[in-house]
Design a binder for these strands. Sequence first.
DNA 1: CGGCAAACGTTAGAAGTCTAATCGTTAGAG
DNA 2: CTCTAACGATTAGACTTCTAACGTTTGCCG
Lengths: 147, 147
Amino acid sequence: MPDRTSGPPAEPPLGLQLAAAAREVGRAFDAALGAAGGSLSTWLVLLALTTGRAASQRELAAAVGIQGATLTHHLAGMEEAGLVARRREPTNRRVQLVELTEAGRAAFRRLRDVAVEHDRRLRVGLDPDDEAATRRVLEQLRANVAG
Amino acid sequence: MPDRTSGPPAEPPLGLQLAAAAREVGRAFDAALGAAGGSLSTWLVLLALTTGRAASQRELAAAVGIQGATLTHHLAGMEEAGLVARRREPTNRRVQLVELTEAGRAAFRRLRDVAVEHDRRLRVGLDPDDEAATRRVLEQLRANVAG
DNA sequence: CGGCAAACGTTAGAAGTCTAATCGTTAGAG
DNA sequence: CTCTAACGATTAGACTTCTAACGTTTGCCG
């Protein structure tokens, strides 16, 4: 007598499958961005700035989903590369405002093409209902581990 | 006249949602394992060894999904901690065989409880059909970026 | 007003991962 | 047989991320 539901031969845990898929997809995306002279972190920063989701570093870190210290590191490199400029907010000199330079806007357009192509490639053969179900599940998983 | 399908207000790209969910779930799991004196990498190594999916380091790295150099690093720590023992395969002295010690087996049992609980927590409120769809999608995504 | 606590950002240091270069061992071509 | 190429593992160095400690600036309470 089987001890559990005696269903299929024990599929891999959902968390493992999630981690493996995310790792491979992320790696492929980063490689594609790298071929266009970018990286995942620079893309996310450029995207958040372009869409106006963030002006200060604190907001930017939240939008990108990384810690402030990590963002400081990346911004140093991006500023060095001339993609962004930083200046203090006059009315509150603790805050560092981040702005795109012209080179930053150009880099955004280049990487956006890569991102669109990546997204297209990702969806090949995907059933729309399955995708919707997946989005629901991913949000549920986040909620289940939150707090 | 809307330029695209003019559907819902542009949901976040699937890749981003996937990465965010995987990061948060993985972080929560690692924290839980940490509270039991382990970590994600040690858990994966112990699991692969216990289930007999790997004996040499090369197989072990493949089973865990990391590079050989990274595994070397972790095994050094685990051997130091007395969880595993390494010895050369006699018939092919290039190969390093990895075996669990008694302490390693005890650690496995401890972390297994954490993993089971994590998996249970993860599935709360999940529709079985949605979960099946998600597994299909995750495999499709891996296939779409492979090669 | 003066000083203390909070907010924002930076720096320092640790952990995990990767790639490239190297070492020892083995297999195979000539 | 020998020697060269391949293989498994390790080492070295880089990158990304984190947390903790710190410096500067601001807000507010007394």
